[in-house]
């Protein structure tokens, strides 16, 4: 875990980025009539799963292309710090994948679209995953 990697507080950029995410969610509803939840879009992007899988696969391709567009426009690669403990990352991947499908949504499906729909299930899901995420970071960074 990259301990004490301080990241700057960016309220303006983060709000603007959030608005763009929201506009994408509204666009998906206006065009396809579906919730823009990335876990649902990912599992629905396989031909065997849904009949309307094509736009979902294209959406995922758009996500992957985003840092390349940012690089092309700004000339600077997107900076990020990814945890380097590969065993921990493998466990994290399994938990995130299993949990988002079992819980019918992730940060986007429950957190953005679900809260915007005033869904009680999504509110409970958000409070639950926020709580376990806070406790996990607390334990890994300050107790272990």
């Amino acid at each position: 875990m990259p301990l004490d990697t301080v990241t700057p507080f960016t309220p303006l950029a983060s709000t603007f980025g959030g608005v763009l995410i929201g506009l994408s969610a509204v666009l998906v509803m206006a065009l396809f009539g579906r919730i823009a939840g990335i876990s649902g879009i990912t599992t629905g992007a396989l031909p065997a799963r849904r009949d309307d899988w094509g736009w979902r696969l294209a959406f995922v391709a758009g996500l992957i292309a985003a840092p390349l567009l940012v690089l092309a426009v700004t000339g600077a690669p997107v900076s990020q710090t990814v945890p380097t403990d590969l065993v921990a990352m493998a466990i994290a991947g399994l938990l995130v994948g299993f949990g988002t499908v079992m819980g019918s949504g992730c940060t986007s499906g429950h957190g953005v679209c679900g809260l915007a729909r005033l869904s009680p299930r999504s509110l409970v899901a958000v409070l639950t995953f926020m709580a376990t995420a806070f406790v996990t970071v607390l334990v890994l960074r300050h107790i272990v």
């Binding site: 466990i91 299993f98 949990g99 988002t100 819980g103 995953f129 709580a131 376990t132 995420a133 996990t136």
Partner: peptide
């Protein structure tokens, strides 16, 4: 599911 996801996210 949400609890499991949160642990992985953390």
């Amino acid at each position: 599911g949400a609890a499991t996801f949160g642990i992985g996210w953390g």
